[in-house]
Nucleic acid binder design. Structure first.
Lengths: 187, 187
DNA sequence: TTGACTCCCATAGATACCCATGATATTCCA
DNA sequence: TGGAATATCATGGGTATCTATGGGAGTCAA
């Protein structure tokens, strides 16, 4: 008997806001998350086009650009929209308040300190008129990027890799998944 | 993430792909899952018509198109509606944040990495005005598709095969079932 | 002045949108 | 009930638009 693994019943939880973007006047397109991978060129000025599909995810955010920081665990740049950043802050704020720990909320010190750390090492990267960003030297170096960059969608956020590094990482990732499914499932 | 393991549907037993459109009564309007098999042409621009019956399944979704990724276990393209993808994301996002696990949300490490990986290897394939999609070169190659494609309904999702590859796969699938049932069971 | 950065324009190729056609199904009415 | 008018679908092709990319001009600060 062949088995397929499928997600259980799906009902929208309505958390991630649905954003509308007008295309050529006639049809509207709805995009809500970062998916797929794209490889773009880094020009001599250090500019890279953020894939149009990703930009459309951020389409209606007031701040036209992305937040990026070096991954703490891998040679890769993590990135997302300002909305995500605000949401993280808000949730963290609410969590500390709900727990009655006003000191934490006010002084801004928590046990893990991760959110604070990320805030500290993050950069705001605004789009230019053509939807490009300039990767700061610090991030370029961290990811080992030279003249090309691979954009990898991760749903609520995306990553920027050096193509070669990503290739290896991706192969390992898929292999791990395959091993996990070796019990007879298909994916 | 929660998964249910369900048996593969058996609609394919001795099933021959329909070349021409099926008789579509009004009852088919009510179909809510992907069933049956169709073989369509891939034109010079790489476009394929998604069977109308499948499109009607997605009819109520705001985004008009499908999400597709290369199966990691077979030479086939897996596809499903946008709603399922968003739901996967939201569940994962809420789950990690609600549990206060900012590490997972930011660094993106989950237990299995399934959602992460699927997001990265998935492509968003919007319908054109005629209900066609363009199969990306990456997926075409993975499935070994040339000028024709076989759409196979699998309930909550569907697959796109190279016709020849599917024929063999299907024969093996049926044969395995037959062997299993040869003890006297009926189907 | 130099260097870093932003804004603006140009362009080739990819993509989306539009219209057309033949085949088949369905509706509707004499 | 037969058949003409209408609707749906898969398919093909032309064209306008968008995207990624390159480069130049203007601004600002040291």
């Amino acid at each position: 008997m062949i088995f397929h693994i499928v997600p259980n019943t799906l009902e929208g939880l309505g958390f991630v806001p649905v954003r509308r973007r007008k295309k050529t006047g006639k049809s509207e397109r709805l995009v809500t998350s970062f998916i797929s991978t794209y490889e773009n060129k880094v020009d001599r000025k250090g500019r890279v086009s953020v894939p149009a599909a990703y930009r459309s995810v951020l389409g209606t955010e007031s701040y036209q650009g992305v937040i990026a920081y070096p991954s703490i665990t891998h040679s890769v740049i993590e990135a997302f929209g300002r909305g995500m950043l605000d949401d993280l802050n808000q949730r963290k704020f609410n969590q500390t308040l709900d727990g009655g720990d006003f000191t934490q909320a006010l002084i801004g010190r928590s046990d893990d300190g991760l959110v604070e750390t990320v805030m500290a090492i993050s950069s705001e990267l605004p789009f230019d008129g053509e939807g490009r960003i300039i990767l700061p030297a610090r991030l370029i170096k961290h990811a080992g990027i030279t003249d090309r960059a691979t954009f990898v969608g991760r749903g609520t956020r995306f990553q920027v890799w050096a193509p070669g590094v990503y290739e290896k990482h991706q192969a390992a990732e898929v292999e791990a998944l395959r091993a996990k499914l070796s019990g007879g499932g298909t994916l």
